[in-house]
Design a binder for these strands. Structure first.
Lengths: 150, 150
DNA sequence: ACTTTACCTCAACCTTACCTGAGGTTTTAT
DNA sequence: ATAAAACCTCAGGTAAGGTTGAGGTAAAGT
């Protein structure tokens, strides 16, 4: 029988709006943990629900599971993470989000310039090499051909 | 011998900062076109350079190759696309970019609220179901558990 | 003329983030 | 007691956006 504090995989899946297979997958990736009952079925503590919410929020921000795993690794190991812990996490992601927003704004503004000149790749085009503020965030510098005009 | 107007795959790759294999890939996906010389080697018109620049810019904006292909399909078929054509394209992507930015801003602001409450998944949390303005852009509504507090 | 560099095709492989199905066990409901 | 629902593992598949390598041809440099 399922006790209040022990959630089955199906329950967790339903409450979080994910498939059971996703929970298996997250567990295999080390993002969530479970223990087993007598019949070898997974049981979860309630804080798995928050973890999954966090994962989903992170994904919306463009954060990969690897990155999520990395920050989860900094959560307290023994005690259940509390509000402070999650808040710290939010704060760091908020900054990433700000950078991403700033980057896209820069791109958009470049594009605005391009509408005027009809380009996207010409010399004098503002989108040409727009100092990549995301740095090593996986987005490389625009490499455009200087002779691409016709 | 390579005439001015006929670019080889290696030249295009070098000028655009992409691999030759990427050009093969784009061609296979219908994003760029080439014809062959006597020896069966690919030759490109100069406007392929701009196309590739556009593809790379689009990717930075989070636009998929499929979407790029779709807008390329609306470029004039017979004549070489001119500034006006590219400008129209920029304009439409600029709007997408604006939506994406607005979405991320909303997420960020929700996160700001969450820092205060230490949540990310609790009832009363602003990130809980933040009307998804990107709609069917591949980002579903946040589905969070209302009972996820401890 | 000969060698190196560039190019060709096709198949297979990589990463991220999962999903699907087969074959079998456990729980739960009736 | 039995059937249905839920669970298990493990292998293989999907999509996007490419990369890598094998085996062979073409073009360029000397």
């Amino acid at each position: 029988m399922l006790e209040e504090a022990n959630l089955s995989v199906g329950i967790v899946a339903k409450r979080c709006g994910v498939n059971v297979s996703t929970l298996h997958f997250y567990e295999q990736k080390g993002l969530i943990r479970s223990w087993r009952n007598q019949g070898n079925q997974r049981r979860y503590k309630r804080d798995v629900l928050r973890r999954i919410s966090v994962i989903k929020a992170a994904q919306k921000m463009g954060i990969s599971l690897e990155e999520v795993k990395a920050v989860f690794a900094q959560l307290p190991n023994q005690r259940t993470p509390d509000k402070q812990d999650w808040a710290k996490l939010s704060k760091s992601w908020q900054q990433q989000l700000n950078q991403r927003i700033a980057y896209l704004e820069k791109l958009r503004d470049s594009l605005t310039g391009c509408i005027g000149c009809g380009c996207l790749s010409m010399k004098n085009c503002p989108i040409y090499n727009p100092e990549d503020i995301l740095g090593d965030s996986g987005v490389g510098a625009l490499i455009l051909d200087k002779e691409a005009e016709e």
